[in-house]
Write a protein that binds this DNA or RNA. Sequence first.
DNA 1: CGGAGTATTGAGGCGCTTCAAAGGCGGTGG
DNA 2: CCACCGCCTTTGAAGCGCCTCAATACTCCG
Lengths: 248, 248
Amino acid sequence: MPSVKWALEAFVQRLAALSPLSREDISVLLSLPGEAVRLRGNVDIEMPGQGFDHACLVTSGLVARFAQLSDGRRQYTALHIPGDMADIHRVATPLAGSTLQTLATATIVRVPAKNLKRAASNSATITQAFWAYSAVDAAVLSQWAVNLGRRDAKARMAHFLCEMGVCSEHSGDGDRHEFLLEASQGQIGDALGLTAVHVNRTLKVLRESNVVAIDGRIIRIQDWPLLSAIGDFDPRYLQMDPRAVEAA
Amino acid sequence: MPSVKWALEAFVQRLAALSPLSREDISVLLSLPGEAVRLRGNVDIEMPGQGFDHACLVTSGLVARFAQLSDGRRQYTALHIPGDMADIHRVATPLAGSTLQTLATATIVRVPAKNLKRAASNSATITQAFWAYSAVDAAVLSQWAVNLGRRDAKARMAHFLCEMGVCSEHSGDGDRHEFLLEASQGQIGDALGLTAVHVNRTLKVLRESNVVAIDGRIIRIQDWPLLSAIGDFDPRYLQMDPRAVEAA
DNA sequence: CGGAGTATTGAGGCGCTTCAAAGGCGGTGG
DNA sequence: CCACCGCCTTTGAAGCGCCTCAATACTCCG
C-alpha cells in the first residue's frame, strides 16, 4: 500500500539511479512539500492552457498523460505508475501542453512548481537528474511512437503488456508475470491508438493462444518469451530492468 | 547557405529563447569545438549500441532520428533541421538508444559529448537550457505520437506538412507557404507510419483538391487554413512560431 | 432493484497494405 | 556521349486489418 512518503522516496531513488545526487540533494528532494489528493477514475487532473502551478507525483493507481484531438479523441503519450513525477518536464517548459488523467482511482501529490524550480536552481546535480529523468521519459515515448506507427494490433498489445509488466515489477507490486493493470479496454485503446472493440478482440486472440490469461484486471503472462517476441520487446529503453542493466 | 558558424549560432539562439543564458554561457556555447562532416542521403550516422561520443549538430539538409524494428522497418521519431542539436538528450542518458539517419545530402557537426557535459556541469543555466531544449523536443514527439495513433493518412500528412512548413520558416529558408522538403516519399512514410505507396496516394488527393502543389521536392501550400484544419494543426507545441507566441 | 459503465460478439465497410508493373530522373561507366 | 542502372514516382488490383454500428450480457454501486 504505497504511502505518500513511499512515493517520494521511490521518485528520489529513481533520480539517483539515473544521475548522481549528493546527500544534501536527496534531503532537499525528500522534504519537498505537497498536498495529497485522492481522485476517482477517468478524471482529468490538469486542464490545458492553464498555467503550470503544480507537478503531479503519482502515489497509487495509474495516471495517463495524453493529448487530445479537436473532436475529443485521446491519445495517451505515457502511463505513470506510483513513484513517477508525471509532468516534471513542465518545470523546464511550462508551455508544453500535456494534460493528465486518472485511469482508475488514484492518489496523487501536488508538488508546487516553484519548489521544484527552486530545488533545480540551487543544485546543478538536481537539474541534471531532472533532465535525465525527462530524457528517459522521452525515450519511452519514442518507443511508444514506434508502437503506434509500425506495429499491428497484436504486436502493439504484446509490447504494451510487456512494458506494463516490467514497470509493475519495478514499482514493487507484482512481478512481470502477474500484475494488476487498472485500465478499461477503452483506456488501453487510448494508449495503443485502437478502438475499445479491437482491444477486446486482440486480447481474445492472445488469451486463446495461451500467451496471457486475464482475470478481471489482473494480467497473467503465461509465456513471457513468446509475448516479448510477438511485441519485439527489448526492455533496455525503460532503464528500469535490473537484468537488462546487467547486460549493458 | 547555412555555415557551421551559422548553425551553432542558431542553436544557441534557440536555447536562449527557451531559457535565460548569461553572456558567458553564450560565449562558452559558441566556442564549442566540432568537426564538420558532409554525408550523402540515406546514411546512418550513429549505430545503436555504440557508446555516445559525439552529439550531432545539423548544419544543412535534414536528419531523422529513428527507431528500428527487428525486421528492419523504421519509424522516425523526429526530423531535425539546420540549427538543431539532434541528440543532445544523450548527454543526460547515454543509454537512450536513438539513432540518426540523413535524408538527403546533409552536413553535420560532430560535437564531442564531453565538451557538452563539461559546459553543463560548469553552468546551471546551461543545464537548464539543455533540459528545456530536450523538453520541447519531447513535446513535439508527443504530437507525433498523436498523429500516428489517432489520425488517418490525410490528416497525418496535413499535420506533418504544416509542421515542416513552420520549421522551414523558422530555420530561415523559405516560408511556410513554400519550402523545400528534402525527403523521398518512402522517407515521409517512415515519418508518418505509412507505406511509400500510400504516401503517394495521399499526396495525390491533397494535390487534386488544390490544397498543396508539389514540384519535385518543393512544397507549395496553396490553402494554409484548409491544410491546418485537415491536420488539426496547432503550432503552439513547437514553441517556434512568433505568431503563436504572441497569442499566449 | 435499477442504471451506468464495461466486456463481448457479430456483420459490414473502408482504409491501408501488398504485390506488381511501367515511366522518369540522375549518376556512372563504357 | 549515350547506354545503362538504380532509385524514385505513379498507378492498378486484390486482400486484410481495423473501424463503425449494433445488440446482449456482466458488474459494480447507489
